[in-house]
Amino acid sequence: MHLPAARGRVSAALIDVLGGRAAKLPAFARFDGDEDLHLTLFVCYELAYRGWDGVDDRWEWDPGMLRLRAAAEQRFLHDLCEWVGPPETGVDPASVPARLAEIVEADDGPALSKYLRGRATHEQFQEFVTHRSIYHLREADPHTFAIPRLGGRAKAALVEIQADEYGGGSEPRMHQELFKQTMRWFDLDLTYGAYVDTVGARTLAVNNVMSLFGLHRARRGAILGHLAAYEMTSSLPNRAYGNGLRRLGGDADATAFYDEHVEADAVHEQIAAHDMCGSFATAEPALAGDVLFGARCALAVDAWWATGVLDAFEQGRSSLRGSTIAAGLAG
């Protein structure tokens, strides 16, 4: 994946160093808004995934890089706590599955799935798929970081969920691969990370919150809560996405990714809430509040992203960065 174009002073300094055009990372981080912050985080985090073309893998653990990442993480954590409140203390571990259900039930995020099912044009659905490619081409990877940090029933439950995400060991059934079929139907670039420059801060934030939780052992409760929220809110939207794509003429290959999630996530919902999160909270009661925090953050960041996309669609404008890029995709 090629290094993206900068979106502010901090991301510019970071990208210049990784690209060999500068020798020193910034000593402090004053971000030029959300675009600068979330691109900086995304660039730092990608070093722990598949990396950047031409960038030495040793940058992942460079002390200066970690200091910069930590400063960006603190800014993002501050934003998250302002949105959903800090993690609760003194949460009864036995209440965690029921509390997760309450959080999901209370979620009143924007009805993007309803719009895509009944109103979206081909070009708008294509934009939606472009946004989601940033995550779906590495789907499940952020949550998999939690596996070696768990034990017992919670670990077994997470492995069960993740095994399905990775197609039970069959490459064509991996959800990452199924999503490529949807992208192919829309004539999109299947290259991992091809559209990082095309999407905005909100899309990057959806990915960054997973990495923020998944890459830190201290936030293992939050990454489990995040996954639980995803699994518990997936089936109905994916049914809507599949039906919306069929309305536009999508064939069985194009809709396979969404149809797979309708069935798989209905099963995963119970495993995630009870076997994974419930068992984890019982084993580590001090982190029960972190599980709920992770779930709230998942829903809040997704709602922030979906609001931006839906607002753009309803106003008749592109949800992507740059009118020329958007026009190229629509053409």
Rank of each mutant, 00 (worst) to 15 (best):
161 I>A: 00
79 D>V: 09
154 A>Q: 06
261 H>L: 06
95 S>D: 11
111 A>E: 09
291 V>K: 02
313 F>D: 02
169 G>P: 09
133 S>T: 07
127 E>I: 00
28 F>L: 10
88 E>V: 12
177 E>D: 01
306 A>Y: 14
227 L>H: 08
138 R>L: 13
236 L>N: 10
281 A>G: 07
255 T>S: 10
306 A>H: 13
252 A>V: 05
32 D>N: 13
195 Y>W: 08
5 A>E: 15
60 E>H: 15
139 E>N: 10
113 S>N: 11
274 H>Y: 13
283 A>V: 01
260 E>P: 00
13 A>K: 11
253 D>G: 12
160 E>N: 13
121 T>L: 08
69 R>Y: 08
35 E>P: 03
116 L>N: 09
173 R>T: 00
203 T>C: 15
10 V>S: 00
64 G>Y: 04
213 F>R: 06
55 V>D: 00
148 P>G: 05
43 V>Y: 04
169 G>V: 08
213 F>N: 10
78 H>S: 05
206 V>P: 00
27 A>G: 15
285 P>L: 04
279 S>F: 06
16 D>P: 11
20 G>N: 03
210 M>G: 11
197 D>C: 10
59 W>C: 08
80 L>P: 02
62 D>S: 09
36 D>I: 01
90 G>A: 09
157 A>H: 07
124 Q>H: 09
164 D>W: 02
10 V>P: 02
249 G>E: 06
323 S>C: 04
51 G>V: 05
313 F>C: 03
142 P>G: 02
242 G>Q: 02
222 A>N: 15
53 D>K: 05
137 L>I: 01
161 I>Y: 09
312 A>R: 07
164 D>H: 06
38 H>P: 01
15 I>L: 03
320 L>A: 02
238 N>D: 14
158 L>A: 03
131 H>M: 04
157 A>W: 03
109 G>W: 13
298 A>D: 03
173 R>F: 05
195 Y>L: 08
224 L>M: 02
119 R>E: 14
220 R>T: 12
102 E>F: 01
85 G>N: 13
281 A>D: 09
318 S>V: 02
55 V>M: 03
3 L>P: 00
38 H>A: 03
91 V>P: 05
205 A>W: 04
36 D>R: 07
225 G>W: 09
112 L>D: 01
11 S>M: 01
294 G>D: 11
324 T>Y: 06
263 E>T: 14
12 A>E: 14
37 L>V: 06
281 A>I: 03
115 Y>V: 10
21 R>P: 12
173 R>M: 07
220 R>D: 11
50 R>N: 09
119 R>W: 04
325 I>R: 14
311 D>I: 01
32 D>L: 10
282 T>I: 05
284 E>I: 15
77 L>H: 05
211 S>Y: 09
14 L>S: 06
167 G>L: 04
78 H>I: 02
163 A>F: 14
330 A>P: 00
42 F>T: 09
45 Y>L: 08
326 A>L: 03
36 D>W: 00
44 C>I: 06
209 V>G: 10
284 E>K: 15
1 M>Y: 00
